[in-house]
Design a protein around this nucleic acid. Structure first.
Lengths: 350, 350
DNA sequence: TTGTAGGCGTTATCAG
DNA sequence: CTGATAACGCCTACAA
């Protein structure tokens, strides 16, 4: 009885008119049902809803988009070196979107280009996006946020610190997380601890560095400039940045790398030099990417709930639309945890 | 002179009517210009095109979608354990889509569910997708291909073997690639070579296994059942699958793992047992994912051109639409290459 | 080669 | 509370 003509090849999809006719009401009434209009007779609504359910009718998104001037698409804007993060974000967002009428459109951009802004503007403007999620470091661009506001496009920024109002922000607390990690190192007895910083212009790099410095200061440990090396969040940069640290004499007994890729680089460099990890060198990374458990020894690292954050970001965006009031109160701040594995040990007592 | 009103907050976007008026022609003529209709007066076309360029007019995709009954969206359908592959595919597809009016909508599905088919159907049907790219192992589902055909949705399948017509297929030659890799092992002197196979139901697993067997047969080497272990393409499965192989006596002197994640698992298992790689055990993986260069020693593996394949898939889909005839002839078969790194050496002469 | 009328499926306006 | 009627912006007939 239900679902007629669904396997006749090109199923002639039913329209709002069909439903209206079947229900004996006007199309506008059907439209009201679809859009949850509050002023509707109880039984009228029920009747229409029953028919919609029985027929399996689904409103045409293209027509809705045209009439509303707004599409049911969420955009994901990023320019990020961390592939694992992108994928995890996608996963979280998609989880939130699942079962709704929203779809995810992904959009890598080039933050170095001077056309990024126009690029993104035309993207949201053309597609009439419902909203966008912006990944770091693009999310740190305030001008971008302003522009989106002007264009009337909702947005949520992901970041390592609170950069915007709660409704526009989902953040992790990198600084405190790193401070915790370094405190762990200190508690093990380390005093000469090296830092491989992330690239300039990344807020996350700054936050992590500040967390690092904070923990040292608390413990009254000074940080000579030579113990800080610059990295680019890549394996190769971690590898080469660690060279200068490992050349030091005395050598640092521990190194905090601002992300796992660079930590893997440190581990690799240590292996090349025959430095035993963790006996002669402790290493801590950040992100808890799969690589941490593939290498030997597995890396101690900081885990942040990327998937949950992606989900929260998407829910902030569509919360009102799907009528789940509870979701509007998605948290804006997520906390990270230290994952202890095999790359940390007390320093050798030499 | 060009681009007026682009920073007045809510820029009142111009429509085809505006252009028509400015050019002194009917909107249909403008429409013809947009859609590259061949029957148009040369100068009329030029005049309209000039105005379009000067004003920065862009046709409204929503309206086009409604009128055409087809959206300018490409869908990416996948249910895949290999995150690196998904991201590389996205990259390739996006490269091809860049600069066109197409956007990429991503859609993970659950191939285990008995609603996959209806899920995908409603996805392409609702969004009126221009076309979809299907990743393995979903791409191996012939019923899916038929369904998409019925729904009038273009598609391109990615796979480890040719499963469809060239216009619908972008494949890598896994079998031959693996045979080459194993020949390399044999050339080094290995005779007891173990295989960690991929999961049942994955064509890639089957192809790689056949390539493995082919190379052994060529060399007249028999393959006792005990030298084959089943894996699931995950690190953990590789780790546990290798246990049975490493317990053997005599132990295999080399192991081919059907992907890098499992190869990393083998390496990890070897380390746990104190087996030196490559001195006592050679390992080859497949995929050339980043992990191969993060571990020690770096893994010899097979590289297949995922990004290029993704690009080709997208171009096959949109080639006709963007009028680049050359692109219609995108290759359907891509070949892989053996990447020699540090995990292979001649067997110890014991 | 170009223009006119009508439709794509939905929502907004404004009466009733 | 509900329903005609007119958008939304573009495209396909068909006519000129």
């Amino acid at each position: 009885m239900a679902k007629q003509k669904q396997d006749e090849g090109q199923a002639p999809k039913l329209t709002i008119n069909d439903i209206a006719r079947m229900a004996g009401v006007s199309k506008k009434t059907v439209s009201r049902v679809i859009n949850r209009s509050p002023l509707l007779n109880r039984e009228t609504r029920d009747r229409v809803e029953t028919i919609i359910r029985d027929t399996g009718y689904v409103p045409n998104p293209q027509a809705r988009a045209l009439a509303l001037g707004r599409n049911f698409l969420i955009g994901l804007v990023y320019d990020n070196p961390n592939v694992q993060m992108i994928l995890s974000m996608q996963k979280g967002i998609l989880e939130a979107l699942h079962g709704t009428e929203f779809e995810l459109v992904i959009r890598p951009v080039d933050r170095g280009s001077n056309l990024v802004m126009e690029d993104i503007r035309s993207f949201v403007t053309r597609q009439r996006l419902f909203g966008v999620v912006i990944l770091p470091p693009m999310s740190e661009n305030d001008a971008l946020a302003r522009m989106l506001d002007e264009e009337g496009c909702r947005y949520v920024r992901m970041g390592s610190a609170v950069l915007d109002d709660p409704e526009h922000m989902v953040a992790s607390n990198d600084r405190e997380a790193v401070a915790d990690a370094v405190r762990h190192l200190i508690a093990q007895g380390h005093r000469r601890i090296g830092l491989i910083a992330g690239p300039h212009g990344f807020r996350s790099a700054q936050e992590r560095r500040e967390g690092f410095e904070l923990a040292l200061k608390e413990a009254g440990i000074s940080l000579p400039r030579s113990l800080v090396a610059d990295g680019q969040y890549t394996f190769e940069s971690g590898l080469s940045a660690s060279e200068s640290l490992l050349d030091l004499s005395p050598r640092p007994t521990a190194i905090f790398a601002s992300n796992d890729e660079m930590a893997a680089g440190v581990l690799y460099a240590a292996r090349l030099r025959g430095i035993a990890v963790p006996e002669e060198l402790s290493i801590i990374g950040f992100d808890d990417t799969p690589v941490t458990t593939r290498v030997w020894p597995p890396l101690t690292t900081v885990r942040w709930p990327i998937v949950a954050m992606g989900r929260a970001a998407a829910l902030k965006l569509i919360g009102t639309a799907i009528g789940e009031d509870a979701e509007v109160n998605e948290p804006s701040m997520f906390s990270s945890t230290l994952i202890r594995r095999g790359s940390v040990a007390p320093p050798a007592t030499s």
